[in-house]
Every structure is written in structure tokens, then in C-alpha cells.
Amino acid sequence: MATEEHGSGLAIHPMDQFVVKPLFGDGPIEWYTPTNVTLWMGIAVLAMVALLVLSTRRRAIVPSRGQSVAELFYGFIHKMVEDVAGHEGLKFFPYIMTLFMFVFLSNMLGLIPMSFTTTSHIAVTAVLALLVFLTVTLVGFYRKGIGFLSMFWVSSAPLVLRPILAVIELISYFVRPLSHSIRLGGNLMAGHAVIKVFAGFAGAMGIASVVPIAAIAAIYGLELLVAAVQAYVFTILTCVYLRDAVGDAHH
């Protein structure tokens, strides 16, 4: 590890927060081992249940505060799916809601100090993005058959350009899961690492550490925004990709 081996004065370990640890003991991490990943994903599930199930158990016509929040989430994602992916996309509403709730809650829970951010791991975001990619591809072929490939053949372009555009479209199609996952993981990881770096400065600067602490407060606010926006972006991009599969025409 570079920062330690070469003895810089500051002992900053911005990546420590991302280490996957077993919850019990020090054993090797097998695929079934309960780790801090398990813990924080479980907390995300509990938060989701509290937010969307417990708060709505009274099914009030005039909603309580908790139920209003649940309805807000529902309405927000429902409208997004309907607007972006079209009416056909509403069949995938529970799926997209699952993605959104998981990403949003994981991002938010990750901002609790000392917590573990599951969505900052490429493994997690890559699986999420690959799920979206596979869903879109399979649904596209299932619904449109071979006609799904016509989205790569831009019929509005001049004939000479079409093969070139087809190659570009094809590449961009396969880059989608990569950018989709790296965007989310990278944003989260960068923000958290920056906070840790500033925290390291604060430990080493004595009285002047009010500056990095103020900076941390500001960055924390920004990170709240980033957490929400990245969940939104992840979801809306899922809807955009889904439109290719279920929508009427490529544009």
C-alpha cells in the first residue's frame, strides 16, 4: 500500500471504509459469510420496510406523514417510468422501484458516519447494471424479435453513414452497463474517500482543523445531493434503456 510504505506524514486511509469484513470473527470471506455487506443491505431492507410497508399499514385516505413519504416515492417513480419508458414500461414498475429503493437507501445509509456503503462497490453496482442490461436485451428481443436490432440501424441517417453509426451504436450499447455501474460506484466512492481525506487533514492540523471540518460539512451536504441524484440518475437511465426495449420506436 503506497501511502504507508513510503511514509508520508499523514496517516490517511481513505479506502478503509470500503473494506468488506466478516461480521463474526476473522475467517475467510466465503460467498455465504455474513459480512458488513450483509448487515448494511439488511438495514436497507428494514429501512425500505419501515418506509413503504409499516408507514402505510393504516391505508388512510388522509395520509399520515410516513404514508405521505411512501406515496411520494411511489408517485415519483411511477410517473418517471410512465413518462420515460412509456405505458408499456409500467409492467416493470416493481422492478425499477426495487432498484431505486435499494440504491437510494444504500446511498443514504452510507452517509451515516462509520457505516458501510454497499453501492460504492463495483461488484454491487456492476450486478445492478448487468441486471438492467440483461433485462433490456432479453425483453427487447422477446417483444420485438429480430426487429430489436433495428435500433442500431439508424434509418434517418444517410445510407453511407449507417454502418459506421451502427458500429458506434453497438459499442455504446455494450458500454452502457459499464458506465451505468461505474457512475454510481465511482460517485459514491469518490465522495466518501474525499470526506475521509479531509478527516485525515483535520486530525493532523491542530487548531486549524476547523477548515477541513467546515469543508467536510459542506461536502457532506453535497454528498447528500449526490446520493439522491445518483439514485435518480440510475433509475431514469434504467427507464431510458427500457424504452428501447418496450417503446414504439428508436429515436
Binding site: S179, I182, R183, N187, V229, V233, I236, L237, V240
Partner: peptide
Amino acid sequence: FVGIAFAEA
């Protein structure tokens, strides 16, 4: 937001 997301990626 989609545009910002693409640029940011």
C-alpha cells in the same frame, strides 16, 4: 439529469 449523468460518467 440524463445529460448531466452522461457527461459526468
